[in-house]
Amino acid sequence: MRFSYIIFLLSLASPSQAEYAQRLLLEDVASTHVNHGCADPGHTDFKLLAPYWYKGKDGKVWTVPAGYVVNGGSIPQAAWSIIGGPWSGKFRNATVIHDYLACERISTSDYVHRLFLEGMIESGVPKVKAWVMYKAVLVGGSDWSDVPGYVPQEPRPVESGSLEKLQEFLENNDVSLEELEALELDEL
Rank of each mutant, 00 (worst) to 15 (best):
120 M>Q: 05
14 S>G: 09
141 G>V: 04
174 D>M: 04
141 G>Q: 08
120 M>V: 01
76 P>M: 07
49 L>D: 12
109 S>G: 02
140 G>D: 12
182 A>D: 12
27 E>V: 11
51 P>L: 08
70 V>K: 02
163 L>S: 10
1 M>T: 11
154 E>V: 12
59 G>K: 08
16 S>I: 03
91 F>L: 02
101 L>T: 05
26 L>K: 01
169 F>M: 10
64 V>F: 05
63 T>I: 11
142 S>K: 13
14 S>N: 06
154 E>F: 08
66 A>G: 13
87 W>N: 04
101 L>F: 03
48 L>D: 07
179 E>M: 05
74 S>G: 04
7 I>G: 02
38 C>Y: 01
75 I>Q: 08
24 L>T: 07
40 D>Y: 08
99 D>L: 03
20 Y>V: 03
81 S>R: 12
8 F>H: 09
98 H>E: 07
140 G>F: 14
162 S>A: 15
80 W>F: 15
127 K>M: 13
56 G>V: 00
172 N>T: 09
164 E>G: 06
99 D>C: 07
45 D>G: 11
184 E>W: 04
74 S>C: 06
165 K>A: 11
144 W>F: 13
168 E>Y: 04
30 A>H: 15
103 C>E: 07
53 W>A: 14
156 R>S: 14
31 S>V: 06
131 W>T: 04
94 A>K: 00
158 V>P: 04
84 G>H: 03
82 I>G: 00
140 G>T: 05
44 T>D: 11
107 S>F: 05
145 S>P: 02
159 E>G: 10
